[in-house]
Structure formats: C-alpha cells, structure tokens
Amino acid sequence: MAGDQSQSSNQTIDITSPYFLTSADHPGQNFVGDNLLKDGNYSDWKAEMTNALFTKNKFCFVDGTLPIPDEGSNDRVIWQRCNAMVRSWLVSSMNKELKNIVKYATTARAIWDDLKERFDKENAPRAYELRRTITSVHQEIMTVSAYYTKLRGIWDEIQSVSPSPSCTCNRCTCNVGKSLTDMRDKEKLYDFLMGLNEEYSGIRSQILSISPLPSLVAAFHMVNVESSAFQVSGKKQQGKSWATNRRDDRSNEECAYCKKPGHTMEGCFELIGYPDWWTKKAKGSKNQTNRFKDQHKTAAVHDHKHTANLSREDIEHLLQLIKESKAKDTKPIANTTGLTLEEPDWDG
C-alpha cells in the first residue's frame, strides 16, 4: 500500500489532467476578491467561483463527474490531494459565519451541494424588485452604451434569480427552449427601446417596423450609430432634438416690416426679394417684388424734381426725420425713401 502511494506521488501528471496542480496553487487562494459568499450574493459568487474552477480544470470535483477512486487505486491519493485543494478554495471565498457551517464537510462536492441547497432558490421578492427596476430605468444623461450596460447587468441578475426553464429530457423536438429564449430576448429589446430618450424616437420607430424584429444586439448597434451621428453633427441629446430647439428659438422672432413671425427685417423676403431657390413663392412674388422696387424708384425720381424748391433747413430737417425713422425700425414710406441724395450734391 505504501509502495502504491509512493508510486502515485512520483508519477508525472499531464497538464490537461484534472489532477494537475501548478506551483502557484495553494490552499489560501481567493478567486472572488471582496465578493465573499454571504447571504444575498450567492448567484454572483457562484458565477465567479464556477469560472475559476473551470479555469483550473477542477469543476469536476464539485459537480460529481470525477468521483473518488476505489481503494487501492493509484489515483486515490492524488484525488484526495486535489479535493483538499478545491475544498480550501471554496472555504477561502466565504465570510466567517459560513466558514463555520461547512468546516466539517470532507469533500468539495459536499460543500458545493450544501450551499446550493441553502441559497440556490428562486427569490421572489428580489425578482419582483428587479422587474420593477427594469421598467423605471431610462437613459436620461447616460450615453447609449452606458444605458445598455446598465440594463445588461439587471437582465443577468434576473436570469440568475429567476432562470428560464430548459428541456432536461434531451428528447425535445419542438425547440421550446429556443422559443422561450427568443421570447425573453424580445422582452429585453422592448425594455431597451422604452428607456431611450425622445430624440431616438425616429430610430425606435424604424426598429419596431422591421419584420421580423432585429436582435437586441443589432438594435443596440443601430441606436449607437444614430448617437454617433448626433455627436458628429453637434446636435445635443437633451430631451428635444437640435432642429426642434432651433425652431423654438426662431418662433419668438417677428419681422418689423411684414409683422410675420420666424424672421427679422434682415431676412424678410418681401422686403429684400425672394431668392431663386424659393420655389414655392418665386413665381408669384417675383413680379410683386419688382413692382415694389419700381414704385420706390419712381417715387424717388418724383421727389427729386420737387426738392429743388426746398431750402437747406427743410432738407436737413427731412434727413433728420429719416434717421429717426430708421432708428425706430418703422415701416418706410414711399415718398421719403427717394430722398437719398448726399449733401455735397445740394451744395452745387
């Protein structure tokens, strides 16, 4: 018996074997950091510990797929050594209260099963709280990526607290498992779209009009591209779109000439003439604008003929009235706009 133990301890173990231990492996290793197992965080702890055990190729010691070898087997001592190592890793990842509960367990699988029996149950109050949280989460000041990441964290916790049912008979032919997964993914898509800010209403309608609906990841990329376009064009993502804010700013302006809102005298087409690209009113108003200019020109010539009988004091008085009229942005009068002769012309 002693010879078998000596032989088993001296034999070379392949690095792919679950019995292989590196020189860095020791009983006090902690694979979960500050996330020590306590009442309320079993789902997170289990996910981190499962990942660590798979990485070390030691998960078979807790799920029962590698049972203890029979008495007299060359692998029995090696199994016991690895089992003790895995057991110590589990204990090192718990808080002090839970360590006292499992300290008498002899195998890593016994500890794993005991923790599962204690904590791995559906938590209805927590599931309810998470569902209420998911309906109240909105993007607000978050970026699209940050908002999506926050939702993913809540969805993952919901899955751990209330996992989706799956087929266990291995004889299912109707793919009900895939249908349930697709249904839950569709619910996640609705959650994501409902919480987006209002400036994404256009892309949201576009996504919902696609048949069949795109996947959650595809929808996220579509919205993220829209967000990048907003940033490139300088549009602000603050409740209303840039175009809406611009229209609101201009709606408070009023032209002093035509008394219409949305522009000032400097941009009034009725005063300065309609441009060629203004197709809606170019034809109907072009002649009107030309007639308006002809009337002013005729009035100017008419007034010029009568100014010869005016004294210098009368001309200066008229010029002063014109300046005051322009300062008040009053509507120009046809019989005064023609008085635009400069003073040197009146001296000669």
Rank of each mutant, 00 (worst) to 15 (best):
W79C: 00
I210P: 00
P214A: 03
H302D: 08
E266Q: 12
N83L: 00
S136P: 02
S9F: 09
L37V: 02
Q237P: 04
I210S: 08
I158V: 10
R184V: 10
W242Y: 11
W346K: 09
W278H: 15
Y128W: 06
K293E: 05
K188F: 10
T55Y: 12
S162T: 11
N83R: 03
A127T: 07
G262W: 07
S205P: 01
D347N: 15
K326L: 08
D4Q: 12
R246Y: 11
D182R: 14
D4W: 09
V301R: 14
S92H: 04
N224E: 14
N245A: 14
C169K: 04
L37Y: 02
T135V: 12
S160Q: 15
W346I: 11
G267S: 15
L216I: 11
T65Y: 02
W45G: 00
D114H: 05
N252E: 13
L318A: 08
R246T: 09
N57I: 06
A299Y: 07
P332G: 01
K116S: 12
S209M: 11
D276K: 13
P163R: 01
F119Q: 01
D34Q: 08
E199G: 00
M142C: 03
G273F: 01
D248H: 09
V91H: 01
V223F: 06
A243R: 14
N290T: 13
D39A: 07
S9R: 14
P212G: 03
Y147T: 03
